[in-house]
Write a protein that binds this DNA or RNA. Structure first.
Lengths: 246, 246
DNA sequence: CCTTCCGTTAGGCTC
DNA sequence: GAGCCTAGCGGAAGG
């Protein structure tokens, strides 16, 4: 495909705010927060109407180079090459793609207004605990969620146990780390300062990093195994009755 | 485009391990570590020969759904739809794309053996300091890089200043945080235990978060402004002479 | 604007 | 393989 023709097609796609696909032999250079160069190779370029731009090699999940939404895209011909530049300010970054050959150009005007719904997030885990507190332990009662503690941040779930002890719960959807436990300790200290009583500290997560296990004992933190999947199932089971309360 | 025809094209692409592009009206469901659903909409599907699979909406840098390399891709027709499933084990995950209409299918056999070179990483910053220690301060001399300190981890650069004081340097390519400073303090304490002398602590980074500034004074840590760009330039300038030593 | 935190993080490295 | 850390992380939410 002649570069002049490709250039026209790409310009047309940009004008009408289409999603554009370009396949060809290209070099890529990036300079901004970091810098990279990539020699000639056959790749797929995607330009979206919001200025997102992605260079995909034949292998791998991730784009090798990219620019997030909001970048300005320029196209010009130079020295037997077609050059596409995507710039953004803040941070100042430039991505330059130099095509030596172009095999294919397509542009598409896509309509997509569907809502994306994701389940089994950390937020869902919190909802599940509030909905069915016994998954933490029998007799546990939540008092507040997202309680602010001084400058430290927000407690995921704050409550009392069956014996009337205060309980601070930190939720993680992935294995808990030593940093997570330190954060929890900050909350415990904050609550003790504010209320004059030392609360129990529970970290609820699907697992815990080995390096963090010793921290548990050092700081007197309890670990409660809780998976995102389990929480998702609880929400699904209860949703028939209670989702309309949302 | 008829779904039967599209199905044949996609199968052919899979057989010959091509990169495949499908544009059409689709629904997407994902279940695995988390779960998501996405109703009908016009999107771009990319299937790579290594089993990477990406669903891109008309806007945004990120794919809305995906599967990393190594997943198995199946294609079948069902109830006036074309279904593409990508499964992987460990973690057990499934991505199901149901096409109601297909506008375009293309497959490409791409050759791309170029090496990707990235500059101005944290590693590059360390190299720049070792190559030109005066960018930290006049008279600074590196002794070791990646020195292990007990269980804490590795010091980026360990050296002595012009007055013979030990110096521990922590490098960050982004603004330094309070956590970075605490990490550095761990190293300082480790070195003091090991060598019986308290070293100076320097954090070298392009900037520092406001919340971390007070930690500097509290712990007696020094901040040295050092940008990845500057380090990259030093490496480039010196590379004429010294790159062949690598 | 800056900071903080989450992610189906992915990817790379070590053990 | 599991565990741990980094990223041009991107993105969202809060200040």
């Amino acid at each position: 495909m002649r570069l002049e023709e490709a250039s026209e097609k790409i310009r047309a796609g940009l004008r009408e705010h289409a999603l554009i696909i370009v396949v060809g032999l290209m070099e890529v250079a990036y300079e901004g927060r970091a810098a990279s160069v990539l020699g000639p190779g056959e790749r797929l370029l995607i330009i979206k109407q919001d200025g997102s731009i992605l260079v995909h090699r034949p292998l791998g999940y991730e784009p090798v180079n990219w620019q997030p939404p909001g970048s300005r895209v320029d196209v010009y011909l130079m020295d037997d090459s077609l050059v596409i530049e995507a710039r953004r300010i803040s941070p100042q970054e430039i991505l330059r793609i130099t095509f030596h050959e172009i095999y294919d150009v397509h542009s598409f005007k896509l309509r997509d207004s569907a809502e994306f719904a994701m389940y089994a997030t950390e937020e869902d885990m919190k909802k599940a605990i509030l909905l069915e507190p016994s998954i933490i332990e029998s007799g546990f009662k939540p008092i507040e969620d997202e309680r602010r503690v001084g400058e430290s941040g927000f407690i995921d779930v704050f409550g009392v146990d069956s014996k009337g002890n205060l309980v601070v719960i930190e939720i993680k959807r992935r294995n808990a780390t030593a940093a997570d436990i330190k954060q929890l300790i900050n909350y415990v200290n904050g609550i003790e300062r504010e209320l004059g009583r030392k609360p129990r500290a529970i970290i609820a997560a699907p697992g815990i990093q080995k390096s963090a296990v010793k921290e548990l004992k050092v700081y007197g933190v309890e670990f409660k195994c809780l998976t995102p999947k389990r929480c998702h199932e609880i929400l699904r089971k209860k949703s028939g009755l209670e989702r309309f309360l949302d």
